[in-house]
Structures are given as structure tokens and as C-alpha cells.
Design a protein around this nucleic acid. Structure first.
Lengths: 204, 204, 204, 204
DNA sequence: AATGAATGAGAATTCATTCAT
DNA sequence: TATGAATGAATTCTCATTCAT
């Protein structure tokens, strides 16, 4: 039906604009990027952008939405896991790091604005962070119930692990040398450390 | 000597300006803050700020410098530690979290700009992050040598642990509920997890 | 004939658009009103308006045309006059004030633009003001010829009287308290003053 | 003192800007005039205007303030009048018309915006219209008390007379021919009509 | 050294109008 | 004839920075 075509056209245009915005934001950052920049890259007029997005910030929200969807799709993948704890963690870590690295520059920009823009922050938390935790907690609780891991405060533990990802990515963005050269060693290392701890032979 | 007085005056004025800048940045964020805002809070004229700082970004660098010093002083404190691994970690974590929380809002602003401003990023990394790691690595290597902890890749491990801090703080800034309500439980939890791992009785 | 139907359709559509324009102009004023606003109220697409009116200003001209017709129709009514000078004036005044008050908000907008837009001004004068004076002068001249009123410069006198209306309406629009509360007393007062003058017992 | 010089400089700059604004507004109208236009005529930078006026509308308010002062000064003059009613009215009318005509084009612009801008309207009414009426009413009441004029509703009568001025000016702005050619006859005519009325020998 | 008025580049956003469908 | 997406010119206002006093 006509509606569907309309909607598709609109979605396509939005997508085209978001592509351009993503590109330019990644390249120059949020504030230094002008609407004109984005329009030029998108190959449309300045004003057209405002037919699809209320303002510049809405572009960031739009980008966030797309990250959101990507994330969700990946989440599904990560659900498709089997038994062995160590294998799973390694696989999981590998995937998380790959995903985020792919869009590192955008993430950088988005994160920067998130730190400073309440609306964005709340949307990001509500739509991306929180749901992820909900899933992760459920999954981890199951592992505990199956006696595959020690019983710990699930919520905080999940936060600690996720934070490690987040922090490592930021540290990498900051140009940390060791992280840049040994990034691929992280999955194994983190799995090891998180499973067995740092103490001598598992005891103090 | 006269020079010394001169320098002290200059230092005092710089400090006064940075205080104002810190206050306003924390309150409104970097971009929305105008030089006029800062001057007003500092009780001086707009132009005067430019006698002490090259531009707006230099104010952020100045703030960073001060954080740097604070950090270093704290570092010294943290060096004054004793033997027991678990006790030390708990104490260390407690201190790190407290320090950062104190200036959470500034940190938020600084981090936001760091993500996006190469110069700032490099300075922050060079002056604050890297030195911290150097010390931490040395310290941790000593622990390994004393067989108090397992031998692991020191550089990456230190990064992983630090990242957890960083990530947790960001997650808290984002408004994460569990972190906000159970923040004080973190030192114990992290110590436990990092020392003994998540796996059942220390083995897979 | 087909033409006639065509014309009627066109007239209906124009009318529909002008209704919408009148409503929105009255509500928000000329400049703040967008074509989109009008189209929305009219229930049609933006572009359609341009099939019936050359541009935004033409809408105002269109509204003026309609006021014009209304006015003329009212004029006819006012022709239905009787004898007694005082009675007539009172009746006339009453009607004028009522008419204008009815569409006060549009008048406000139209007047505002008239002050500033030469084309509009000329059209308003040519189509509405001038014809009214022509009729009024003729009528007043007749009164003079019948010795019902003193012989005076008819043109100027008519202008003076009309101006009083106009000015009173504007003063009312401006929010003048006495005019708002005692508006209904005006016909009697004006009739009295204009007929008998302000001086003591008609002599200086 | 320094303050006084400061203030004078500021006043001078404000005046310079208002002069420019008056000129350009009179020439092109309010909306078509850009800040750039005004700055250019004032021989300063765009931004400078914003150091003295909050926004474009504030310029109009500023112009109004100056009209206000002018008006007030004229008012004083008009107070300095003597006895004979007819002579006084003639003189008064002559003055009112002259004053307004002098700044006709600005008045035109101001009036246009007043019709449409509530803030402006209220300020104009409060600062210019209302005080004028207060004075006029007091004066007229005195005349009544001295039996120099008939007792009438003072407030409404003053409004009616003032409105006549206002209306006549507007009509003239609209390009009314008779008013333009016979403008100078108005004082005499209005005095005559208002004093003695239109009816035959002062009676119906 | 301090001031703060002046500067003017720059950017977001609006909206009347056009025109392909 | 109706549509409404696209256009892009145009404008207001902000604010970091300069510099004469």
C-alpha cells in the first residue's frame, strides 16, 4: 500500500541523513559539525534535514536508536550460547569488543554528548544500557542457579563487568598504547582473571 | 624575592579563575559556559582571563592539571599501605571511588571534552593516566614477585582494573539505579571478585 | 454551465482558505502565521494554497476583499435611514461599532500590515475607505442642503468623524480601560458631542 | 565622576543605535529591517547592538521611550496655555498634529507593531497613552468646573477627541487625498466642530 | 595588569515557495 | 487539481577573542 511506500521513503531518507551525520560526527565531533556539513555529505539541502529531525541533537538520538537496534540484534546472537563457562565468556567478550570497535568513533562522539546532555543520557540508559543489564542479569542468575558460578550480587557484578568493557574502550580511545597493541589478548585475559581471580592459586 | 611574589600572585589569580571555571563547568557543562559566566563568578573582567589562559580550552587543561596534582597527592597516600592483599585492595578501592565521586561533575565535563578533543585527551593521558599506570604496574609487579598474586600480564590487568573504576563511574553518572543505591558495597564486592574470581570454588 | 460550477468550486476553495487564514491570523498575527498553519486549519496541503493565492500577502488582500463586501452590505443597511438627525447618528454609530468589534482581531492584524505594506494600504483605501467616504459625503451634503446640519467642509468633517471611530477602536485594542467598560455609552456620547459641541450652551 | 562618563557613553551609544534604527525602520518597516541594516547605518558591528539592546523588539521599545520623552516635553509646552477655549484648542490641535507628523514614518512602524505585539502595546499604553489621558482629564475637568465647557463624561470625551487625532493621522498615512491637501485646515475645523457641534445653530 | 566594549564570524533554524508526482 | 517533500535564502543572536584605555 501507498502508506508503506511512504514510510519506506521516509525511513530511507532518515537513514541517509543519519549515515551522513554518523560520518561527519565521527570525523569532526558533534559540536564542530554543522548542519550544512551533514546536508552536504547527505547530498541534500540544509532545510531537508529539519523535515526529518527536529534539531541537531535529534540526529544524535537517531544515531543512538540505530546503535540500539544493532546492539539488540547482536544480543540475540550472544544468547545462542552453549555450556562451558570459559568458552562462553571468551566468545562473549570477543564479540562485545568487536562490535564496539566497529563504530568506535561514533561511540566516542555519542559518549561525549551523553556525559553532558541529560536527555541523551537518559535515552541511552533507558533504551540500551538498562535492557542489556536486564538480560544479562537473568542469564547470570541462571548460571548461579546451575552452580556454574559463585553466587554473588548479580546486579553489581554485571555492572562491574560491563564497566570494564566501557572503561577499556575509553582507555583505548584515549590512546593507551598497551591496549592498542594487545587488544586481541583481552578476551583471554579477562576471562581468566574474572573466572579465577588474581590471588595466588585462588586463595589469599 | 619580588619574582616569587609575582609568581604567587599569578598562581593565585590562575587558581581563582580555575575555581570559577570548575564551578561553572560543573554546573552547566563546557560548551554552554561562556567566558563571561566564569569571569562573573571569579569577580573579574572577561579580558583578564585571557591574561592567564590562552583560551577557553586552556581552562579545561588547567583544571586537568589541578586534578592531576590532587591525584598525585592521593597516589602518595595510597602508597602508604601495608601487607594483606585483600585489605589493601579494599582500602584502595574505597579511596578511588571517594576521590572521584567528590568531583564527579567536573570529571563528567572533563571526560566529555576529552572524548572529543585530541589535545586534551593526550594531555590527560600523558599527565594523569600514564603515570598512574607506571606506578601501579611497578607496584603490582612487586606483588607478583613476592608471590602475593598470580603472574599475569601486568599492563593489561592494571588497565582492566582501572577501567572498571572508570566504567562504574560513568555508569553511575548515567543514572544507573543499582550503582547509586549500592555504591558503598562496591569495594568489598570488587575485592572479592577480583581476588577470587567468579567461578565455583576457584575452578571451572 | 460547467464554468459556473468550476467557478463555484474555486470560490468555495478560496473561501475555505480565507476562513482558515482569518482564523489563524486573528489568533497569531500575520508574520508568526505560517502557510502550513493555514493549510492545516483549512485541511489541505500547503501547495494547494498557492493554486488559489499568489502568496501570503495575497491572503491578506483576500481577507480585505471579504471585509469589503461585508462592509458594503452593511453600508446598504445604513442607508435605510429615517429623519431625525440624532436618532440616525446614534443608530449609525451603534452599527459601526458593532461591526468592527465583531472582527476586531482580524482588523487588528489587517491594520498592522496596512501600516507597513503599501500595496495593501492602497487597496484598502481604494476599495473600502474611499467608497465609504464617497457615499458618506453625498449623504452628508444632502443633510446640509436640507438644512438639517450646519454647512461645513464635508470631506474633512466626514474624515474627522470616521477617524474618531478608527481611533477609538485602536485605543480599545490597546487595552484602554474606560473604553472597554463604557464602550456601549459611546453612541450616545458621540452623538451628543458631535451634534451640540462641547462649549457651554453651544456658544463660547 | 567616572560613572557619569560611563553612563554618558552608554547613553550616547544607545542613542546612536536608536537613531539608526529609527531611520531604517522608517524606511523599510520593522520586519524587513535586519540588524545588519541598522548596524551598518550606525557604523558599528552587528554584535554591538546586542550589548545595548536585548533584541530587535527592544529597539522598538527604545524608540518608544524616546517618543515618550519628546511627548512629555511637548506636553509641558501645551500646559502653558491661557484662557480662551477656542484659541487654546486651535493651538493645541496645531501642536499635536505637527508633532506627530514630524515622526510620521516611525509612528507608522511603531503603530504597526503595537497592533500586533502585546508587550509593546502595553508599554506604549502605560507609558504614553495613559499618562497623557490623566493629564488631559484633569485639565478638562478644570474647564468644566470653571463652566468653560459643558459637563460631559470626561474620560470618554477625552478618548473621543484623542482618537480623532489618531484616526486622522492613520487616514493620512493611508494616503487620503483630502487630508493631505487640507491638513492645515484641520485645527480650525476641528475646533469649530467640537466646540459648536454639527447641528443647525447648536440645536437639533 | 585589568578592564569591558567592540568585534564579526558563524550556526541553527525557519518558512515561503516550487514542482515532480 | 492536490499534494507535500525539497529547497536554500535569509536572519537573529551568541560568544570567544581582541585591544585601546
Amino acid at each position: 500500500m501507498k502508506d508503506s511506500i511512504q514510510e519506506q521513503l521516509i525511513a530511507a531518507r532518515r537513514s541517509q541523513i543519519l549515515d551522513a551525520a554518523t560520518t561527519v560526527f565521527a570525523e569532526k565531533g558533534f559540536h564542530p559539525t554543522t548542519i550544512k556539513d551533514i546536508a552536504k555529505v547527505a547530498g541534500i539541502a540544509d532545510g531537508t534535514i529539519y523535515n526529518y529531525f527536529e534539531n541537531k541533537t535529534a540526529l544524535l538520538l537517531g544515531i543512538l536508536d540505530r546503535l540500539n537496534e544493532t546492539e539488540r540484534r547482536d544480543e540475540d546472537l550472544s544468547q545462542a550460547t552453549g555450556a562451558d563457562m570459559g568458552t562462553f565468556m571468551r566468545a562473549y567478550f570477543k564479540q562485545r569488543f568487536t562490535v564496539h570497535l566497529h563504530s568506535l568513533e561514533v561511540f566516542q562522539v555519542v559518549l561525549s554528548e551523553i556525559m553532558v546532555n541529560k536527555e541523551l543520557r537518559e535515552q541511552y540508559y533507558r533504551q540500551i544500557v538498562e535492557p542489556t543489564f536486564t538480560i544479562a542479569e537473568k542469564y547470570y542468575q541462571a548460571l548461579i542457579d546451575q552452580h556454574m558460578v559463585r553466587p554473588v550480587d548479580v546486579a553489581l557484578t554485571m555492572r562491574a563487568i560491563s564497566s570494564m568493557f566501557l572503561g577499556l574502550i575509553i582507555l583505548r580511545i584515549m590512546g593507551d598504547k598497551p591496549l592498542q597493541t594487545q587488544w586481541d589478548d583481552l578476551p583471554d585475559l579477562l576471562t581468566d582473571v574474572l573466572l579465577h581471580g588474581l590471588s595466588q592459586s585462588g586463595s589469599e
